[in-house]
């Protein structure tokens, strides 16, 4: 039991925040996605999404690139290798913790 609690206490806090869990889950299965897509899928406001992406970028989990699609500015986000590994680890930890709770 103490081991299970330690496992929960040890989850990655950057990913554990619900909005950031959602962003990393969405980005995990793709090469990259733009800001518009993430905005629609997460239902967050622009400011909120920007803040969460900035936090993930700061942790080295997300790479953000600014460019243009035609004349329209486009912000593309993708998970880094560290981000992928962290998300995999997070899922495994949460699965183990939930399993142990029965």
């Amino acid at each position: 039991m103490a081991h299970d609690l330690k496992e929960i206490a040890g989850v990655d806090r950057v990913i554990h925040e619900p909005a950031r869990t959602l962003i990393t889950a969405l980005l995990y299965t793709v090469e990259s996605a733009d800001f518009t897509y993430l905005l629609r899928e997460t239902g967050l406001t622009k400011g909120n999404l920007s803040a969460h992406l900035a936090r993930l970028e700061e942790a080295g989990y997300v790479k953000i690139e600014k460019g243009y699609r035609g004349k329209v500015p486009q912000t593309t986000c993708s998970l880094t290798e560290a981000g992928r590994a962290a998300f995999r680890r997070y899922r495994e930890q949460m699965k183990r913790a939930l399993d142990s709770m029965g």
Binding site: E31, A33, D34, Y37, R40, E41
Partner: peptide
């Protein structure tokens, strides 16, 4: 699609 609901590059 992309101008409406965003761009996704698939793995």
């Amino acid at each position: 699609t992309y101008p409406r609901t965003g761009y996704v590059a698939y793995r």
